[in-house]
């Protein structure tokens, strides 16, 4: 039994069957990659996992509990954090404030009317946020406006924000899309380090095979809305079905 169990999930948009019969089992503490050509339904599947979309059929269980019908913030509080394709951070806030907000969410829950105490008195939160910034090698940028940072730094900050919530499952949606090679390699190293050092499960949607094969220890290939294969990386590499899905039948 994996930490995330997707069973028979289907989703239709008008005339388009975006997902059908998707079965997926993500094992605890693994790095599970979901790959597939454009339009395979990777993002739709991800949105079904975080509460942005509700599948028409099937079930999604996280740690034995159904996530269907719950709002994104509730699913996050269950222990699933999401990293977006384009970094979603609080651009108008400083880097330190960005890091403090998930710490508050972890400590106080989805809503807390803490309107009279000063932020500066929240020593535990400040300490945790500072610690996380150091771990992400961004301590020197703590008073910078988050929007002013480079894309690679924004990505780093976003991952750090997710980690500071101590999630059990980290979902990444093409974390290296649009990045230069050096930034991509940095991100790979960071994710490797995270999965080695922490008690965390990572599910990653990715286009870049270099990223997938350097990180994943389990891969699901999605094509036209259904899983084609689920296997270990070395077996996926040589699988003719996968090649066909990516390169077309003539290849």
């Amino acid at each position: 039994m994996g930490i995330l169990e997707v069973k028979d999930v289907g989703k239709r948009f008008g005339g388009l069957q975006a997902l059908s019969n998707v079965n997926l089992s993500v094992q605890e503490n693994s790095v599970h990659a979901i790959i597939g050509p454009n339009g395979a339904g990777k993002s739709t599947l991800l949105n079904c996992l975080v509460g942005k979309l509700i599948p028409d059929t099937g079930s999604v269980m996280f740690d034995g509990q159904s996530v269907l019908g719950r709002a994104p913030y509730e699913i996050n509080q269950m222990g699933i954090s999401r990293v977006f394709q384009t970094p979603e951070i609080f651009g108008d806030l400083t880097v330190l404030e960005n890091m403090m907000i998930p710490c508050f969410a972890k400590r106080d829950g989805a809503f807390e009317l803490n309107a009279l105490s000063s932020v500066l008195r929240q020593k535990d939160i400040l300490q945790k946020a500072e610690h996380m910034l150091e771990e992400m090698n961004m301590a020197d940028k703590r008073h910078m406006h988050a929007a002013a940072m480079s894309r690679g730094d924004k990505r780093r900050l976003e991952i750090g924000m997710c980690l500071s919530q101590e999630p059990r499952l980290l979902l990444l949606d093409e974390p290296t899309a649009g990045m230069a090679r050096a930034d991509t390699n940095n991100t790979i190293d960071l994710l490797k380090q995270i999965s080695d050092e922490r008690d965390i499960t990572i599910a990653i949607i990715e286009h870049d095979m270099h990223v997938v094969f350097s990180l994943a220890n389990r891969i699901t290939v999605l094509a036209q809305g259904t899983p084609l294969v689920e296997d270990d990386p070395q077996n996926i590499r040589g699988n003719p079905k996968v090649r066909e899905a990516y390169l077309g039948e003539s290849a």
């Binding site: 994104p72 913030y73 996050n76 954090s81 977006f84 979603e88 951070i89 609080f90 907000i101 919530q165």
Partner: peptide, 11 residues
């Protein structure tokens, strides 16, 4: 600043 991030940060 970013409601989307708020929602996906459990708030």
């Amino acid at each position: 600043s970013n409601q989307q991030r708020m929602n996906y940060t459990g708030l």
